[in-house]
């Protein structure tokens, strides 16, 4: 298994401890799988995604990512996982404003030390970003920025792509185009996809689905 989540529980310090954000969540994902996680606002789905992305710690249970038990890893080792194994696409794009589009696209791959110029060129073309390479993020529209973010994530050939409401900031048409493209590219790259969305329509595009309600898998 690429990803195994077992009896995961997470509380936020200071919040109502009787009601954990996530309680007893178990999920698994094999290489190449696509999973869409749906749920209401505040159901804990973004939190789950962050935990899987080794961005935050949890209280009990375990997450195994590519054979590593996350609870046992130090910050540095988790950073290595983020760098080499998983890639993230955020709702807010999170591009680096001072880097050009081309630099942003190759940034994660270069951090991971596996920049594949051919693959990046292919991605650039498929994402419709040809001719935008010298521009800076602030000069792009929202949809363009999100395509750069997707390109950046896939450029490093992640084993697992984590996407958090990737189209949340986009209008419906743009959103559909971007999502279709992303699924297509994920399939082409062989990565597994863990997609968080509140949209049933988008969730329907994934191979498997799970629903989170009040911190529990329904």
């Amino acid at each position: 298994m690429l990803l195994e989540i077992q009896s995961l529980t997470k509380r936020y310090p200071g919040s109502d401890s009787a009601r954990p954000v996530l309680s007893d969540v178990s999920l698994s994902l094999a290489a190449g799988d696509t999973l869409a996680l749906t749920g209401e606002s505040g159901s804990g789905k973004s939190t789950l995604l962050h935990l899987v992305g080794a961005l935050d710690g949890f209280d009990s249970g375990e997450i195994r990512l590519d054979g590593h038990a996350l609870s046992t890893l130090a910050d540095r080792e988790r950073a290595v996982l983020r760098r080499d194994v998983v890639a993230l696409v955020f709702q807010q794009f999170n591009l680096i404003p001072s880097l050009s589009v081309a630099q942003n696209l190759s940034f994660h791959a270069r951090l991971a030390g596996r920049e594949d110029r051919g693959w990046i060129a292919q991605l650039t073309e498929r994402l419709g970003l040809d001719g935008f390479g010298a521009r800076y993020p602030e000069q792009l529209s929202g949809g363009q920025q999100q395509r750069v973010a997707i390109g950046r994530a896939l450029a490093m050939r992640p084993r697992l792509l984590l996407a958090d409401e990737p189209s949340g900031n986009l209008d419906e048409t743009t959103s559909d185009t971007v999502m279709a493209l992303m699924l297509d590219l994920v399939a082409q790259s062989g990565a597994a996809l863990f997609l968080v969305t509140h949209s049933e329509r988008i969730a329907a595009l994934a191979g498997r689905r799970a629903h989170l309600s009040n911190g529990r898998i329904a």
């Binding site: 961005l55 910050d75 950073a79 983020r82 993230l88 955020f90 591009l95 680096i96």
Partner: peptide, 16 residues
């Protein structure tokens, strides 16, 4: 600050 967060999310460790 935002840039630091993005870089950390992309796998640059806090120490580095």
């Amino acid at each position: 600050r935002a840039m630091f967060r993005t870089m950390r999310a992309l796998g640059v460790s806090l120490r580095r």
